[in-house]
Structures are given as structure tokens and as C-alpha cells.
Write a protein that binds this DNA or RNA. Structure first.
Lengths: 90, 90, 90, 90
DNA sequence: CACTGGAAAATGCCGC
DNA sequence: GCGGCATTTTCCAGTG
């Protein structure tokens, strides 16, 4: 191509990078919207979204991880004299 | 019945909801990874990632700022009619 | 004052309102920074900030509120066959 | 010792940390209430709160946008030296 | 009284 | 490995 200079190639490369990123971010946004939609639908079916989110996040964690966190929380609460309710153990 | 506290109805439905969300989050994660990859590749080609990110974020903001300007115009137009005169305040 | 028109009074009032709000928001920001500082210091003393935050948030809630949420969470988890570990009850 | 899991040391310290944070959050809440009050008062004087909020938020953004512009300038200056030529990319 | 939008908090990522 | 920054998520007040 007659008009092609040796810098335009690199510029095209930059543009391409930016385009790819922007396109991927667009896709990500679409999926995020889809997720919101699922939550909304669930809500429409009577589910509590807050709890639902918590369930999802718990499923992400290794069981051991979760137990460790809880143990630590109890340590802190005990140090403050805020023992977790023993009622639930009954 | 506010929020679902009984388990008698459509337990499979909950599972399905969770599955859909997790699948979508998986896709989102994949795309995020792709984006990282593009950045990494760009870095390999000698681009400064920090700057690249700033370019992307500025491009993202520009349309938004145009909207902000329009909003501001609207605000000031409205403001012309929003200041109580002493008479009104009395 | 010779130059005072009857609209400038109201304008001064608007400015005053804006100033008051901005000043208060400034103060709020300062306090938020102070809070961050306390967390940072705590971290320096070996505390786990994440847990610390959870403790603070638990203290904000009514005990009954917390128990209710937990109960609901268990319902959802059960519906998914994710019984909370009985190990901690031992 | 990563993160504090023993309770033997300075339990009072934890309590003190929590107290400080809660006190600061209390102050923050007070200020937030003050802000609401100013808005309410303004409303009583006939101002449109929605517009008022927008004015505040625009004033907040303007300095930030100036900084963004400077950042953009910087970015483009840097970009002049950031594009790999074919030679470098080889 | 549920929804939407905006503020605040929390998390995770990146560079040093 | 830590601190700072950007993004994401959560919360809450205002609105219809």
C-alpha cells in the first residue's frame, strides 16, 4: 500500500489492542446484565436475593476456608464478651 | 408469603437458579481472564500497561462526560427557575 | 448597600446552602479517613481486618435479626443439599 | 504468627479498637444527618433537592475532570514514546 | 412498598 | 509482601 508508513503499522496495532479490550469489556457487561436478570427473576419467584447472593459466595469458598473464618470470628467475639448464641447448637 | 422460607415448593428451581448464576459468573471470569491476556500480550509488545489502562478508561468516560455536560446545562436551566425570591420564601 | 439587587439575596442563600453541604461532606471524608487509619493501625498490630469489619457489622445488628438471616441461609443451603457442617456443633 | 488467633495478648486492645471505630462511625452518621437536615431546610425554602444534589455532585466532579484532562495530556505525551516500532517489536 | 439510582464499603489487582 | 488504586458489590435514601 502506497500510503502506509512504518509507524502506521504500530498505530494500527495499538488500535487493535484497544478494540479487543473494549469488545471484551462489552461482553463482560452483557453477562453482568444477564446475571442481574437472573436475580431479578428469582426475586419475582419469591427468593430473597440477599440470601441468594450469600449462598453463591459460600459455594465459592472451600469448606475449610469458611470454617477457619468462622473460628476466627468467634475468637474475636469472645474477646469482646460477645459469645455467639448457643441457642443454635440446641 | 414474603420471601421464601418454606422448602416444600420447587427445590429444583433454586438449584437451577444457582446453576445459571454460577455458569454466567464463570463466563464473566473467562472474559476477565481474556482481558488480562490481552494486556499481557500488549505488554510483551512493549506497551505500558498502566498507560493503556488509562487510555481505555478515558475513552470510556468521554461519552459519559458529554452526558454530564448536557445534564449540567439542564440543571442550570432549571436553576433559573429554582431560586426562591424573597417573596416566595416569605 | 447600593448595589444589592433583590435577586442577589436569594443567590447568596443558594451559595450558602452549597457551602454548608460541601463543608459537611468534607468533614465526613475526614472521618472516613480516620476510620481507615484505625483499621490500618489494627492491622499493624496483627489483627485481621476482614474479621474486624465483620465484628463491627455484627455489633450493629440486632441479635434476632442475625439469627433470622442465619436460619434463612440454612434453609437455602439445605434445599441445595449443602448442609452446614455439623462438625462445629460437636 | 500470621493474624491474631490467640486471645492471651491484650484483649482490651481489641475492645479499644472497636470502640474507636464505632465512635468515629457515630460521628460520621451525625454529619450525614446534618447534611440531610441542610437539604431539608433548603427544600423548606423552596429549592428543588434533586437539582441541588446534582449541582453539588457536578461541583465535586469538576476538579476531578481537570485532573483527568491533565492525566490525559500526560498519557498522550507518554504515548508518543510508547508505541513499539516494528524494529522494537521484532 | 417495590424500584432505581447514587453513595459507601469491600474485594481484588497491580506495581513497588 | 504491602500499600494504593480500580473495580465491583452492597446498602440506603428518594421516588413513583
Amino acid at each position: 500500500m502506497a500510503t502506509k508508513t512504518n509507524t502506521s503499522f504500530a498505530e494500527g496495532q495499538l488500535k487493535q489492542i484497544v478494540d479487543r479490550i473494549e469488545r471484551l469489556e462489552e461482553e463482560k457487561k452483557t453477562i453482568a446484565a444477564d446475571i442481574k436478570e437472573v436475580y431479578a427473576e428469582a426475586k419475582g419467584n419469591g427468593y430473597d436475593i440477599k440470601i441468594l447472593r450469600k449462598v453463591i459466595s459460600l459455594r465459592k469458598k472451600e469448606p475449610g476456608e469458611r470454617m477457619e473464618e468462622e473460628a476466627m470470628l468467634e475468637v474475636y467475639l469472645s474477646a469482646l464478651g460477645m459469645m455467639p448464641t448457643e441457642a443454635e447448637a440446641a
